[in-house]
C-alpha cells in the first residue's frame, strides 16, 4: 500500500532514472514513430487528394484566371459557367440517368451470376472442378482486348448455331444494341467478372460445413440451402462486389465504347467533351482559332468532376461496404 502511493508520487524523470533511462527511450521512440507516421500519411493523402482539389479549383475559374500566373489554387473570378458548359456538352442529366440505369442493371446481373457461380465453386465437389476454376483464373488473366475484335465480329454477325440465319436469311447484327453486353455479363465474361467469382468463392469457402449439413438434414435442397441459409450471411461480400461492379461499370470506357456506343453514357461523353468544346467555340461563337489548350483542359476537368461526383458521394456513404467486407473475406491464395 505504502509502496503504491510512493510510486504515484514519483515524477516522470525519477521513474525514468529508476528504469535506467529505458522509459524515456521508449516514449521517445513512440513519439518519433507517430510523428513520422503522421508526416508520411499526411503527404501521401495529400498526394492522392491533390488532383481532385486542383480540379475543383480549376473548374471554378473563369478563363482569364487560367492564364493569370498569380492565380494558382484560389480563383479570382469565381464562376459556374464551366459547369453549365460541360453539362451542356455531355447532356448531363439525361446521360446521368442512362448511365445510372446501365450501371445498376449490369452490376445486378453480374453480381447475381457471379455469386451463384462462386458458390458453386466453393461448396460443391464435382469432377473437373480444378479445371473449371483454372478457367476462371484464365478469364481474370486474359485481357479483354485480346478477344475484343473477334467478340465484336461475333456480335456483328450474331448467330446461334445458324438458327437465326435459317429463319431470317441473314445473321442478326447485334452491334450497337445493348443485348451483347448483357449476354456477356450473364455469361460471367463482363468487366472483371472473374474477380468477383474469385472473391465470392473465397468468402463461401470460409463458411462452416455444419451449417450446410444441418440444412440438408432438415430437408432443404441445394438451391434452398443457398438462398435461405448461405445468402443472408453473405451480405457483406455481395454488397462490396455490387459496389465495385457499379463503380467500375460507371467509369468503364472499353466495354461501353465497344458494345454500348449508341447509348449516351458518361464515360463516352466525357472522352468527346474536348472536341465538342472546340466545335462549339469555332462554329457557335465563330472564333476560328478554336478552344485554347488551357480552356479545353479546364472544361475536361469540370466534366471529370461531374462524372465522378455521384460515385464519390456513393463512396462517402458506403466506404465501409467497399473496404471492410473484402478485408473480412480473408483472402488466401
Amino acid at each position: 500500500m505504502t509502496e503504491n502511493s510512493a510510486l504515484t508520487k514519483r515524477t516522470y524523470w525519477e521513474r525514468n532514472r529508476l528504469s535506467g533511462g529505458e522509459l524515456f527511450q521508449k516514449d521517445a521512440v513512440k513519439v518519433f514513430v507517430s510523428v513520422t507516421r503522421f508526416i508520411l500519411l499526411f503527404g501521401m493523402c495529400f498526394m492522392i487528394l491533390q488532383p481532385i482539389l486542383n480540379k475543383i479549383s480549376v473548374s471554378l475559374m473563369a478563363e482569364e484566371d487560367l492564364y493569370n500566373p498569380l492565380v494558382i489554387a484560389i480563383p479570382e473570378h469565381v464562376t459556374t459557367a464551366n459547369y453549365e458548359l460541360a453539362a451542356g456538352f455531355m447532356n448531363y442529366w439525361k446521360t446521368l440517368f442512362s448511365t445510372f440505369i446501365v450501371a445498376i442493371t449490369i452490376a445486378v446481373v453480374q453480381v447475381v451470376v457471379c455469386t451463384i457461380v462462386g458458390y458453386g465453386f466453393a461448396r460443391f465437389d464435382f469432377p473437373l472442378k480444378k479445371f473449371w476454376f483454372a478457367c476462371v483464373l484464365l478469364v481474370i488473366i486474359v485481357p479483354p482486348q485480346t478477344i475484343s475484335s473477334s467478340l465484336w465480329l461475333h456480335f456483328y454477325f450474331f448467330d446461334v448455331f445458324g438458327i437465326i440465319k435459317l429463319i431470317t436469311g441473314s445473321p442478326m447484327n447485334l452491334s450497337g444494341s445493348v443485348v451483347p453486353y448483357y449476354l456477356l455479363s450473364a455469361g460471367c465474361m463482363g468487366l472483371k467478372c472473374g474477380l468477383y467469382i474469385y472473391l465470392v468463392r473465397q468468402f463461401f469457402r470460409n463458411m462452416p460445413k455444419e451449417l450446410e449439413e444441418a440444412a440438408y438434414v432438415d430437408g432443404l435442397g441445394t438451391f434452398g440451402t443457398f438462398t435461405k441459409i448461405m445468402l443472408p450471411d453473405a451480405k457483406p461480400i455481395i454488397i462490396s462486389c455490387f459496389l465495385f461492379a457499379f463503380v467500375w461499370q460507371w467509369t468503364d470506357s472499353f466495354y461501353s465504347g465497344m458494345f454500348l456506343g449508341k447509348l449516351r453514357l458518361l464515360s463516352i461523353q466525357l472522352s468527346a467533351i474536348g472536341e465538342r468544346l472546340n466545335s462549339y467555340i469555332m462554329y457557335t461563337l465563330g472564333e476560328s482559332t478554336g478552344a485554347s489548350i488551357g480552356y479545353t483542359q479546364c472544361i475536361i476537368s469540370t466534366g471529370t468532376l461531374m462524372v465522378i461526383a455521384p460515385i464519390l458521394i456513393l463512396y462517402l456513404f458506403m466506404q465501409r461496404g467497399f473496404t471492410e467486407s473484402i478485408a473480412q473475406t480473408g483472402i488466401k491464395a
Partner: peptide, 9 residues
Amino acid sequence: SGYIFISPF
C-alpha cells in the same frame, strides 16, 4: 448441383 451452379460460367 455443382455443375448447375457453375453452368452460367
